[in-house]
Design a protein around this nucleic acid. Structure first.
Lengths: 178, 178
DNA sequence: GGAACAGTTCAATCAATAATGAATAAATCT
DNA sequence: AGATTTATTCATTATTGATTGAACTGTTCC
């Protein structure tokens, strides 16, 4: 069965938890929208969005219930967010459930996200580039020249891109963020 | 029926076109890999990749045949690439088919891509942010304060991000790209 | 110990996205 | 005009990716 995109704002939570208020709904939508642009699954964005607007850390079953997620999605999404450093556990006295809060520093978030995304790409791109060059050398005549020129271009693209990342990070952290 | 990921390097092209050589195969793989990171369909990456390594402009049926794509995918992918400015038509004498070549300037490519991706996001994010603030004002007590603080934070994130884009563009174009 | 709770894993299911190809249009040739 | 070539559109099909939930693990409480 397909779960509801977002539970209705009105109506008492049939999960036993308070339904989302309009601020929560809109904030979550904002993050879901962003997640599309970044190619991230909506459930993850929903979890982060709700933790982000929440004035206090939430236990897993609470955001699961309020977002109408399955236990599996919640668990996986939470893990992903923790690995990314976007969410951190917070102990709450007299409650054995784990509670979580959003890490809300743009620099951290964006930095880690970029690192994760970009790193996974540059992972074997270097290796592949070398292979392209090796193969290009085996060609003959003008084909060979063109192939080598293209390979060189790719190398320079890679270098340029790699150089930009730290700068972006610095800008994200340094901008008068107040 | 599923098409082959990439036609085998050896073996005469059963489409009547030359099979891909190793340089072409590896270059295409590189772009396909990148397209995953960027959330773009592989067929588009294949087309761009082949045009990128090709020493001469290719007509649609040629890259369609060599990549083993359907006519539909080729046509749509080509259109997407043209809209993005990543590929441009080139007239070839005594051939009535349209020929295309890759636009291979990192600055153009990345710039247009970012614009397309990011712009579509910031499209209505401003509107949504205003709505969040409006709704937050209707809340009471500490909840209200927290919600307003979060909304303010989102606004600053947006401002920061918007400010960075032009800088990234400048860096992509300006780096000693040789 | 064992019942209730909190959480994870993963194979099966469902939804979203990409690719296909038949129908069609438009242009060029004879 | 009619035949041929080139290319586009879009409903259908295939593929990928996200979500579910039942089975399981480990804790805590009585």
């Amino acid at each position: 069965m397909k779960r509801n995109a977002l539970p209705p704002v009105t109506g008492s939570g049939r999960s036993g938890f308070a339904p989302l208020n309009p601020v929560e709904v809109e904030t979550i939508r904002l993050f879901v929208q962003l997640s599309r642009a970044l190619g991230q699954p909506p459930s993850v964005a929903e979890i982060y969005g709700l933790l982000f607007v929440s004035p206090r850390p939430l236990p897993q079953d609470e955001f699961t219930g309020r977002l109408n997620l399955s236990k599996g999605s919640a668990s996986q999404g939470l893990r992903y967010l923790q690995d990314l450093g976007a969410v951190r556990p917070v102990a709450v006295a007299a409650d054995r459930r784990g509670h979580y809060e959003a890490v809300a520093e743009l620099r951290n978030l964006a930095g880690r996200f970029l690192r994760q995304q970009v790193f996974s790409y540059f992972q074997d791109s270097g290796e592949r580039l070398d292979k392209i060059i090796t193969e290009a050398r085996k060609l003959a005549g003008p084909e060979r020249d063109h192939a080598l020129a293209r390979a060189k271009m790719l190398k320079s693209w890679e270098k340029n891109s790699k150089r930009i990342l730290p700068l972006v990070m610095a800008l994200l952290g340094g901008g008068r963020g107040k």
